[in-house]
Amino acid sequence: MNAHERLPHIDQLAWRKSSYSSEEGGECVEVAACPGRVHVRDSKDTTRAALAVRPTAWTAFVEFAAH
């Protein structure tokens, strides 16, 4: 990505929550992908800062967590 490319604002991302999550306020995160980054945030407090990682790091984490 070069300095002239504009990423979407965090509020404009399409956030998704796991299908394993309940609406009862459990421990859950939401993720949103955009070019070159996967954003992760706390679904209970979406005003807190999101973590941004490279897609390869997110894939490695998901593969590790699945075991």
Rank of each mutant, 00 (worst) to 15 (best):
S18R: 10
A50L: 01
V38P: 01
D45G: 03
A32F: 06
S43H: 03
R41F: 00
E27T: 13
T46D: 04
R41A: 00
L13T: 08
E27C: 13
G26S: 08
V29A: 13
V38R: 00
C34K: 06
K17R: 14
R16Y: 07
A14R: 12
E24C: 12
H39P: 01
Q12H: 09
S19H: 15
S43Y: 03
T46E: 05
G26Q: 14
K17A: 13
V29Y: 05
A50F: 01
A49S: 08
Q12V: 11
D45P: 03
H39G: 03
A49W: 00
K17H: 15
S22T: 12
G26Y: 15
S19V: 13
T46M: 05
L51F: 02
G25D: 13
A33W: 03
V29L: 10
Y20E: 09
K17Y: 09
G26R: 11
E30M: 13
C28Y: 10
T46I: 05
T47F: 02
C34Q: 13
E24H: 11
C34H: 07
L13A: 14
V40K: 01
S18P: 12
S19W: 12
A14S: 15
W15Q: 12
A14I: 14
A50S: 13
S18V: 15
T47R: 10
A32S: 12
E23F: 11
Q12I: 13
G25H: 14
